[in-house]
């Protein structure tokens, strides 16, 4: 019988690491995406994402179920990523170089190679542009555009009002549109 997410969380709270492995398998890519958008550097993103899930495991007993698990784990992820980004003094050029190294495995699995190439070019410019935003602006647009979280959920994660989320999003989108110009 397939366990529901609530069952998995309950098992995790009893110390079941296999249940936590399942939850991690379900969300690690989505969490990694948002972190990668904030910290930009691939290895740093992996490190922060692993730390996120480790902290999640340690604190799972305090998870009350008032929000969904992914909102809860996102809060940990975004806070860690923003802290990390603020601490980092890494040169932007270095970060970009590392982003280019990534091998995209799924491209080889039966998808249209021309679309992938076009998307990849735009994606690279977009990720370079997003790196020039502040961590707070990055986090807000990533949580909305990538995850589709509501302003309320984003506000809860970021510890700010829905109005602040709205104005940060407006600013971030405007900046990215300016950077990308007619390519968009």
């Amino acid at each position: 019988m397939e366990l529901t997410e609530r069952d998995l969380i309950r098992n995790c709270q009893k110390g079941d690491s296999a249940a936590y492995e399942e939850l991690t398998a379900k969300y690690y890519r989505r969490v990694l995406m948002v972190i990668l958008g904030i910290v930009h550097h691939r290895e740093d993103a992996m490190e922060v994402a692993q730390e996120t899930f480790y902290k999640g495991f340690r604190n799972i007993k305090s998870f009350q179920g008032g929000s969904s698990f992914y909102t809860w784990i996102y809060r940990i992820a975004v806070n860690l990523a923003i802290d990390f980004q603020r601490r980092q003094k890494r040169a932007v050029a270095d970060s970009r170089e590392n982003m280019d190294d990534v091998v995209v495995a799924s491209e080889s699995l039966g998808t249209d190679p021309y679309r992938e190439l076009r998307d990849r070019e735009l994606g690279e410019r977009l990720l370079a542009a997003i790196d020039e935003l502040t961590p707070d602006h990055k986090a807000v647009i990533l949580m909305r555009a990538v995850e589709g979280l509501s302003y309320k959920e984003i506000g809860r994660i970021m510890g700010c009002s829905e109005g602040t989320v709205m104005s940060r999003l407006h600013y971030a989108r405007k900046k990215l549109q300016e950077k990308l110009g007619p390519d968009l």
């Binding site: 990694l32 998307d119 994606g123 990533l142 555009a145």
Partner: peptide, 15 residues
């Protein structure tokens, strides 16, 4: 913009 951002990040974590 939103769709391109999502696709770009999805591609970068797919492996």
């Amino acid at each position: 913009l939103d769709a391109a951002l999502k696709r770009a990040l999805e591609a970068r974590v797919s492996d």
